[in-house]
């Protein structure tokens, strides 16, 4: 009865059909006719976190593509012979079949779409991947569809696994903040509006949401180097791909720290997982 829903190529197609149903996104959860049982639905999602439950179960927090963030019980997942096997670790992107519950759904089947195994087999990769999951967990509401965030998250995890750059996480944070309507202003001083081309920016102020010139900064904000402002501006304007190939530098380090601070400022809480970066 276990994990194998359908043979691989066929299965992929089945999920794509559901993905292309554009109007689904706005509709409330409803039973999927194809399965023919009320309360049963299918989706795909990234496992954000897992918490042990009872003897052998786990509660999973999953950001799904079409049903938003859900919490589901995976029964017996901690047993070594579980039908779910190792598919449900954080960072995994999986195809799911679930029973709709009041608070917790119940996972009945799952299949790997992208295991992102590499992320869990490198300490540095994992400590950069988990803060992305934590930020998404805090930013999203239960059962509120956010397909754009799902798309961004799967993309960011894939990029981190392939390119192994410490800039993926900060870039993801800035993109996530932009989606939330928080776009940092770095082409001009956020206070006196003098263009950065005329008067270089000196520091970044989280409250103002942008860079400040030396005069306006008056020792406030986080001081950033010219190189860091340049890197930030390249990341924000679509130049991430090239930046990912560059070796870590003091500027990239500053941009990383600033992105984390901006995310924590926006969330009004600390990201626990960021303490291990």
């Amino acid at each position: 009865m276990c994990g194998v829903l359908l043979a691989a190529p066929e299965r992929r197609k089945r999920f794509e059909v559901r993905r292309s149903g554009a109007s689904r996104v706005d509709r409330p959860i409803q039973p999927v006719g194809a399965i023919g049982m009320p309360g049963l639905y299918r989706d795909q999602g990234v496992v954000l976190r897992t918490v042990k439950l009872g003897e052998a179960d786990r509660i999973l927090t999953i950001l799904t593509q079409n049903h938003g963030k859900i919490r589901a019980v995976a029964k017996g997942v901690r047993k070594t012979h579980s039908k779910f096997g190792a598919r449900l670790e954080p960072t995994s992107n999986v195809a799911l079949q679930l029973y709709l519950g009041r608070d917790l759904d119940v996972l009945t089947q799952c299949e790997t779409i992208e295991s992102n195994r590499a992320l869990r087999e490198g300490y540095g990769l994992l400590t950069h991947a988990i803060p992305m999951l934590e930020a998404v967990d805090h930013l999203t509401q239960d059962r509120e569809p956010v397909p754009a965030i799902y798309r961004m998250l799967t993309g960011a995890l894939r990029t981190l696994a392939n390119r192994r750059s410490a800039l993926v996480t900060p870039a993801f944070f800035w993109k996530l903040l932009a989606l939330e309507g928080y776009e940092p202003r770095i082409n001009a001083c956020a206070r006196c509006e003098t263009p950065a081309a005329e008067l270089p920016l000196f520091s970044f102020d989280l409250q103002e949401g942008g860079g400040l010139c030396r005069g306006c900064a008056m020792g406030g904000g986080r001081q950033l180097s010219v190189e860091a402002f340049d890197l930030l501006s390249r990341i924000l304007s679509g130049g991430l791909n090239d930046a990912l190939d560059e070796a870590p530098s003091p500027a990239s380090h500053d941009v990383e720290k600033l992105a984390l601070a901006a995310m924590e400022h926006h969330l009004e809480r600390r990201l626990k997982s960021a303490s291990l970066i």
Binding site: V4, T80, H81, F84, R87, R117
Partner: peptide
């Protein structure tokens, strides 16, 4: 797991 069938193994474990 010893005693199990290969075809039932999940991709991560089998990998």
């Amino acid at each position: 797991p010893v005693g199990g069938d290969l075809e039932y193994a999940d991709e991560v474990t089998l990998g």
